[in-house]
Design a protein around this nucleic acid. Structure first.
Lengths: 336, 336
DNA sequence: CTGAAAGCGCTTACAG
DNA sequence: CTGAAAGCGCTTACAG
């Protein structure tokens, strides 16, 4: 690894000059053409690479950010991957190195967060599953000078800017769409309160009454989003004799489980029952009936979160914002 | 951010002593108990965090590795995510920071690789999609002192240790299983030569002849693994009147497409046709008929690759190795 | 136009 | 038992 000193020695000039030439910081005064060229040539020849450590040491700035990610979403939904993709892209464009901290076990969260040294990155974006109990620790890290940004549905603390999602709009959009397609008796899996709220809002705006038997109670956690859990709930409703012509699923996994169950019983999708999901995952295309779904914009939000963090590091004022989900219409909800 | 000097000043000792106490490097001589305690207390009070930059500057070691990942696998297969999970876990256990370089566009690959400064990480694990044209650049980086390890199916260069997969075994295992379940006329999608080779080996070992009409030619690239491409190929074969009782798909996406098509034609899975996939993805559980599939062990391989890199950085000798895929049996291939 | 010097935060012989 | 000094690779006033 060649250093500035190596170049300086070989060319026969001072380290200062080499530094200035390499960084194009000669100012108005400049330097002799021959020297400039000799230095640049030698740097090239020696394969000179700047040493980030010494630069950071001097600048008191790391040029690096951390991503603290608790893996989220159903296996197959690729929310985590899409989100990382957006963050990595932004980090690259902003010339920031990106350190990944990937958590999978709930028990590890706090401990991993404690290992997040402030002298390693200029800031961190929190993502994935959030842990309420981490807030005091986060505020402590913030006080120690670590810039913090998050990308959850909603801000977790007034002092931590967030790139959110209008969560309520997910089911609002899909339910509204189902109504436009002629559905009157719509069911939903009550997995996430805000989503159910959006479902109710769309129903009420359309003047439709919600049949509470069709708001299937679900575990409000990981398992609630699963295909098999939704399938079981659906079977219960069918056996109880409840009637419906639309299902606003709160995940694609739920939707695919539901569609498989309906078809196996000879109930046609979308002719007899229309179905929508959430995540716009690979399931949507792979399902026997391609699934209408709501895109939560993970890549866009990941990108925005990193941009926001960069602003914060630069000392600018930033505010939490929200991305709107988008309905992607496929076969499961539209009779052609 | 408190420094050693801050602590030294406040306690009234030298920086050297603080350094030794903080790092438990007092040696045999030791130091006065009161001082040790005073220093540790002050460090705690000031929230002292070691500065990684100065340490790296001195040690000529970064304590960080890079992951150069070209996102791979079908959307929904979560190979990339699973792989990252294993790498992150290993990095954490080995006390290494992990820098993620996430590439999605083919055109960017080389350029991104060039941006991989040697003074930033001690080594890099290459993963995901591989680019043949990158080899000269990789060898150059290696010569500059960057440790390199990869986790592709096969090693890409004799000088770059690899945590591989016995790719041929994927279809060998699934085909063998289909034969054990009574299949005699087995089809495959010829998407990856080594997988097709494994298919042929299993057939030949069982004394079964391969019907070349049932080796469906596929684009040997991304699109070849897709659900819709496989479905189209299957429809062609069905319309040509080819007979088969088993399908060894080369991805879960292919399998799910095939199963959906068969069922829609009233052909039963697994009773009439048995189907297997590869990836052991979320599709397997979500499909109307849960899919027997081959696990490529991405998490385990990611973990192993980082361990290997650490060994290399430590100056140890390492050798390429291979992980064996594992067959996960589900409903699509077994009549209960 | 060019260079000497100080200093970022730390560790490691070495001296006392 | 404790500390002064050198040095990792770099940048930035400042002096000439």
């Amino acid at each position: 690894m060649a250093s500035l000193k190596d170049i300086a020695d070989e060319v026969g000039v001072s380290v200062s000059l080499v530094s200035k030439v390499i960084n194009d910081k000669l100012g108005t005064t400049g330097a002799r053409k021959e020297l400039i060229e000799a230095i640049k040539a030698k740097a090239e020849e020696l394969g000179y690479k700047r040493n980030f450590n010494s630069i950071a040491l001097l600048a008191k700035r790391q040029g690096a950010i951390g991503v603290f990610m608790h893996r989220m979403g159903a296996k197959g939904a690729s929310l985590t991957e899409d989100s990382l993709e957006g963050m990595a892209e932004a980090a690259h464009n902003l010339n920031l190195r990106m350190m990944l901290n990937f958590v999978t076990e709930h028990e590890d969260y706090i401990q991993r967060l404690e290992g997040l040294h402030t002298g390693m990155v200029d800031g961190v974006v929190l993502s994935g599953v959030f842990h309420m109990e981490a807030i005091p620790l986060l505020l402590k890290l913030k006080k120690e000078g670590l810039h913090l940004v998050s990308t959850f549905s909603d801000p977790i603390h007034e002092s931590i800017p967030n790139t959110g999602l209008v969560e309520e709009d997910t089911c609002y959009l899909s339910t509204k769409h189902l109504i436009e397609q002629g559905c009157k008796k719509i069911a939903t899996f009550d997995t996430m309160p805000l989503r159910t709220k959006g479902f109710r809002r769309a129903m009420s705006e359309a003047g439709l009454e919600v049949n509470e038997h069709l708001v299937f109670p679900m575990p409000q956690m990981h398992t609630g989003f699963k295909s098999s859990t939704a399938r079981a709930a659906l079977i219960g409703a069918l056996e109880a004799g409840h009637q419906f012509d639309g299902i606003c699923a709160q995940s694609d996994s739920q939707a695919i489980g539901v569609i498989n169950e309906l078809i196996s019983r000879g109930i046609r999708v979308p002719e007899d029952v229309k179905v929508t999901g959430i995540d716009n995952s690979a399931f949507c295309e792979a399902c026997s009936v391609p699934i209408t779904s709501v895109d939560q914009k993970p890549t866009q939000r990941g990108y925005a979160a990193v941009e926001m963090l960069e602003q914060l590091i630069e000392g600018k004022q930033v505010e939490s914002n929200c991305v709107k989900p988008e309905l992607i219409i496929r076969q499961s909800s539209v009779v052609s």
